[in-house]
């Protein structure tokens, strides 16, 4: 479903964020990308989202080579990729409901579909009662769940999360992780960049570790570090 061939990313300031990375992620997988701060995790995810261009190598998503995508085609690639950011990126002047509905408006869903799907997804992430709240009236975990609801509302085949639990306490982090697992169980490919050792260890899922931009470990059912 996702293939990287010899990907190198050198930023304009000559920082080499990724060096010759090759990896393949199959449909329905649940993958952690781990590594210390500055190792290149976000860079990898940004490449998938076409937020940045690789310096070298090729990226294939859903059998389509997206290495050189026309600008016009990028939105349609992004519709296949749900994204959750560490800082949520919710619209502050829209309610939880509107934030999620917004993602459907963008793909020109009918009002009927919006009225049907938004409450469904909100109850799935446990936010049915907070639909009318604004982001600043929500806890961090609730905000992250809103972001998650927005990411999956259009049923993207792939869900990408950059440190989805970075700002949350362990209990809340686990709830989010369980949600991600539920989403994965429904067939969505889930890719998570994270530092959270506990979670990675307990989930026993595929782990890809990056260090200084180099892929140093790719284990199915792995833990956070070799010693485990």
């Amino acid at each position: 479903m996702i293939q990287l061939h010899n990907i190198t990313k050198i930023y304009p300031n000559n920082v080499t964020a990724l060096k010759n990375i090759s990896l393949s992620i199959e449909k329905g997988e649940f993958v952690f990308i781990i590594g210390s701060s500055g190792s290149g995790k976000s860079t990898l995810l940004k490449l998938l989202l076409k937020e940045i261009e690789p310096t070298q190598g090729e990226i294939i998503i859903n059998d389509k080579n997206i290495t050189h995508l026309k600008k016009k085609e990028i939105p349609f690639l992004r519709r296949k990729l749900g994204v959750v950011f560490q800082d949520f990126r919710l619209l502050p002047n829209k309610t939880v409901y509107e934030n999620v509905a917004f993602a459907m408006q963008i793909v020109e869903a009918t009002p009927k579909e919006i009225r049907r799907n938004v409450p469904m997804v909100l109850s799935m992430v446990g936010l049915a009662k907070k639909a009318r709240c604004y982001p600043n009236q929500l806890s961090g975990g609730e905000q992250q769940r809103t972001a998650l609801a927005r990411a999956i509302i259009n049923n993207p085949p792939i869900l990408i999360c950059d440190e989805p639990t970075g700002n949350l306490d362990p209990v809340t982090s686990w709830e989010i992780m369980k949600l991600l697992k539920d989403i994965n169980d429904r067939g969505t490919t889930v890719i998570i960049a994270t530092h959270e050792k506990d979670i990675v260890d307990k989930m026993k899922k595929r782990v890809i570790e990056i260090k200084n931009g180099t892929l140093i470990r790719d284990l199915s059912k792995g833990g956070y570090s070799d010693e485990d």
């Binding site: 016009k72 939105p75 690639l77 992004r78 990126r89 619209l91 502050p92 993602a103 963008i106």
Partner: peptide, 16 residues
């Protein structure tokens, strides 16, 4: 700006 960035990430076309 913020809104536009978010729109871009969730797949809004340029014309949208």
């Amino acid at each position: 700006k913020n809104e536009i960035n978010i729109m871009k990430y969730i797949g809004a076309t340029d014309w949208f």
